[in-house]
Simulated assay, not measured.
Amino acid sequence: MDYLYDQGKETGNIDIPQCVTNLRAQRVNMVQTASQYRFLYKLMLEMLVLPSQPVTTEQLNGENMELKEQYLDLSTEESLFPDDNTYKSATANENQSKNRSMDILAADNYRPYLSSHIPNTTDYINAVIMPSFKLPTRFIITQTPLEHSFVDFCRLICEKEIELIISFDDSMSEEEKCLPGKNETKSISGIRLTGVSCEPKDGPDFYTRSFDLNLKQKTHRFSQIVYTGWSQPMELPQSPRSFMDLLRHVQNVTRSEVPILVQCLNGADKSGLFVVIWTLLEHVEIHGEVSIPRVVRHLRLRRKQIIPTFDQFKFCADCIALDDANTYANF
C-alpha cells in the first residue's frame, strides 16, 4: 500500500501486478490471497482516485456543489468491484422466505447468529451488525418482521439483550400485527410478548412503547421508539431538525453499549440513514470534521443498499450542517 501510494502520488500511475512481483522477490508470499490482491485495488481507488477530505460543519453549510460528484463516486466504486460478501445462509432454501426482498440480504460475515433452540427455526435472521465510529457493534439493523419471522425477531432481542429498538413508521399496520398494544399479549412458539406502556409525548415526531418478552422462563424488558416523521410515501424524513431531534433523544436515553436495534420495512433505507448520521456525528465530536463519502463507503461494506439516493446523501450533509457546539454539544 505504501509503495503504490507513493508511486501514484509521484508519477500519476501505478502498476499493482509489477509491485507485487517485485516485493515477492524480496519476501515470498507477500499478498497471500486473491482477496488481499483485490483489496489493494480498492485501497488505491480510495486513496488516489476517490479522495474525500474531511470537512467541518461550517463547510457543509449552504450549497455544496461537490456533493453530487461525491455521490456519483460511490456508484463508480460499486461498479468497479463486486460484492465480496457471501450470503449462503440468506439464500438457503429454509431461509429465503425470511427475507422481504432477495435483493437485501444479511451477509454471513456480519449477521447475528441466533442460538436459542426453538422447533422449526434456524440461526438466520435478516439483520446486520453495524459499527459506529466509537463502537464496533453499536447497531443491528433489520427489516420489519414478517409474521413467520416474528419468533426470530424475539429471539434476537433476547439473545442480544436489546434494550432499545428504533422503528420507522413506514408499515405500522403490519407492525402492529407483530407487536401487541398496551396490556395486550401475543404468544407464539413458547414466546410471550406483552405491551407494558405507551408514552406518546417524547417529541413531536416520535413516541415510546415498552414491552416484556418472556422466552424460556426468562423475562426481558425493552423499549421501542417509533419515529412518525417519515411515512412510506415520503422520500426523506420530515426535516433535518426533526431527524436530529430523534437522534439526540436516542443518544440521551442510551446508557449502555448493548446494540441498538434499528428497523424499517426493508432493513436498509431508513435504518441505514439513521446509522450513517449517528456515525457522522461521532466523527464530528471526536475530530471536529468528517468525510461523508468515507463513512458511507465503510458502512456499505456490510449493507450495500444504505443511502440509496442522492437526496439521502445530501440529507446527511444537511443534518451535519445543523451540528454546532451549542445545540449538539452532547454528541
Rank of each mutant, 00 (worst) to 15 (best):
102 M>F: 05
104 I>P: 00
110 Y>I: 01
111 R>I: 09
111 R>H: 03
111 R>G: 00
111 R>E: 05
112 P>V: 13
112 P>F: 07
114 L>D: 05
117 H>D: 14
119 P>N: 12
119 P>E: 15
120 N>S: 10
123 D>G: 05
129 I>P: 10
131 P>T: 12
134 K>S: 06
136 P>F: 08
136 P>T: 12
137 T>I: 10
141 I>T: 14
141 I>G: 00
142 T>V: 08
145 P>R: 08
146 L>K: 15
148 H>W: 11
148 H>D: 15
149 S>C: 06
149 S>W: 11
151 V>N: 07
153 F>L: 02
153 F>D: 08
157 I>Y: 03
160 K>R: 13
165 I>K: 00
167 S>C: 06
169 D>A: 13
174 E>I: 08
177 K>Y: 10
179 L>F: 13
180 P>G: 06
180 P>F: 05
181 G>P: 02
182 K>E: 15
184 E>Q: 11
188 I>M: 13
191 I>Y: 10
193 L>P: 13
194 T>C: 09
194 T>A: 06
198 C>L: 09
198 C>F: 14
198 C>P: 00
201 K>F: 11
202 D>S: 06
204 P>G: 06
205 D>K: 08
205 D>N: 14
206 F>E: 04
207 Y>P: 01
207 Y>C: 03
208 T>I: 07
209 R>N: 11
210 S>D: 10
211 F>A: 01
212 D>V: 09
212 D>Y: 08
213 L>K: 00
214 N>V: 13
214 N>H: 06
215 L>C: 11
218 K>C: 08
222 F>Q: 03
223 S>L: 04
